[in-house]
Every structure is written in C-alpha cells, then in structure tokens.
Amino acid sequence: MAAAVEIQGLSCRFGGVKALDAVDIRLSPGEVLGLIGPNGSGKTSLFNLLTGHHNPEAGAILLDGLDLAGQSPSQIARFGIARTFQNLRLLRRLSVYENVRAARHACAPLRDAFWLSPAARRQERDSLMNLLDIFGLSEKAQKTPAELTLVQMRHLEIARLLAADPKLVLLDEPAAGMTSAETQAITEVIATHVLPGRSAIVIEHKMQLVAALCPRIAVLNAGRKIADGPTGQVLADSAVRQSYFGAKPC
C-alpha cells in the first residue's frame, strides 16, 4: 500500500544556516525518487523533517493528503514512514532479533506488554526470522549488532524498516562504505523486497545504485532543489554536473 507524498515549499534553518529553502517534491504512490546532492545540501535534513525530528520553518508535508505538521515522530512512524540512517542506528545492547522486533511494538495494546500468547509469539518469530533470512542474518539472530560487519549492519537496518511494513521508506545512503559487489547485492535486495508496493526516497552517492533503482531523481544544492526529472536527463544536465561533480561545462 504505497503512499503519495507532497512536500510544498519546505524550509528550515539551523542557527543562521538555511538547510532547506522552499523545496517542493511530489511523489505519486509507488514512485521511487533518488535524492542526490553534495554533502551538506540538505538531503538528510529533509529526512529529519519528514520523520518529525525537526520542525519546518515554512511549508507543509502531506502524506496521502494528511498534514504531518506538528505530529510527533512516533505518530509519523505509525502513519507508515520508516527510514534507515547514514551513520547506522542500531540498539547496541539488544540482540539482532530484538533489533528487528523493535519495529513491531508500536500500536500494541497494553495487554501485549504483559502477555503474548504462544501462538502470537510463534507467528511473530516466524515472520521476523523469515525477514532476517532474506538478509542472511538468521544465523546471527542472537548476536549483538557489534558482532556484525558493516554490510550486515546496513542489511539489519533495512530488515528493521521492513518489519514495520511502511508505506513510505526513506533510505539514507544504504550503500555507504560498500564495495561495488556489495552495492550490487544490496541494490537487488532493495529492488526485490523493499520497493514493491511502497513509495521511496533514496539518498545515495553511488550512481550504480541510484541508476538501478530510481527512475527519477531530484538534486539538492545548498538547500534548494536545482533539478528534478527522469534520471538520465537530470544527470546529463550541466548545472547538476557542475554542482555535484565539480565538472566544468564543456
């Protein structure tokens, strides 16, 4: 059940710095948007505004027509937005299994805090282990995240995101620090398990991943959207090349 997203005139600033300046982005249900731009251009800030961790100075965010302004991060999560983190955010002292299970505690009735029937436990366990299996982590279920490799940690974050079954996924550099082969593998996992039936925004520097997953990209530079359109067309744009790759116009 993919969601439509409408971001209208979104602005925010930190101190004196304008992190986002009147950004408009529109996503139809099921659409996948690549978000690129130099470091500090406001990509992650956009995610933080979408998940409710910063308040916009101006503008609105509509999820399926529902205004997210003033909603707490936990409410927004329950509306169906889930994300991963560029710098990884895992629960260090909990097992890999509990990390994935973390996404399943929202909306549970109070009774569930004290008791889950064996059938419900088994059902939850089976579905989460299946999920871990997809990412090759079922062997590691009882380990802590610290015992995983960087690549496995990134996979774990995506598994946790899927456990919440979101309508809109925000992936923040899912392939950061990966080799080309690893990037290829995670690209395939995202394409087959994450994107179907969901809308998505993907921040990524690796063009290999962006080109494979995103039919459309938007480019941010210094908080402004400078381009938005079909991937091939945008990447060919000289202004984009200049801001992003520092290339001189030919």
Binding site: S74, R92, R93
Partner: peptide, 20 residues
C-alpha cells in the same frame, strides 16, 4: 510480552524508539 523490550528500546535510544 512486549513490555521489557519496549522499556529497553526506550532506555537504549529514545529517539529511535520514537521512530519505531
């Protein structure tokens, strides 16, 4: 049940807990 897990997640990382 879910109680202890919820407590531990909040204790470990309240911001992430909110995002879950």
């Amino acid at each position: 049940g879910r109680g202890m897990a919820q407590l531990r997640i909040v204790g470990e990382d309240p911001i992430l807990a909110g995002m879950q």
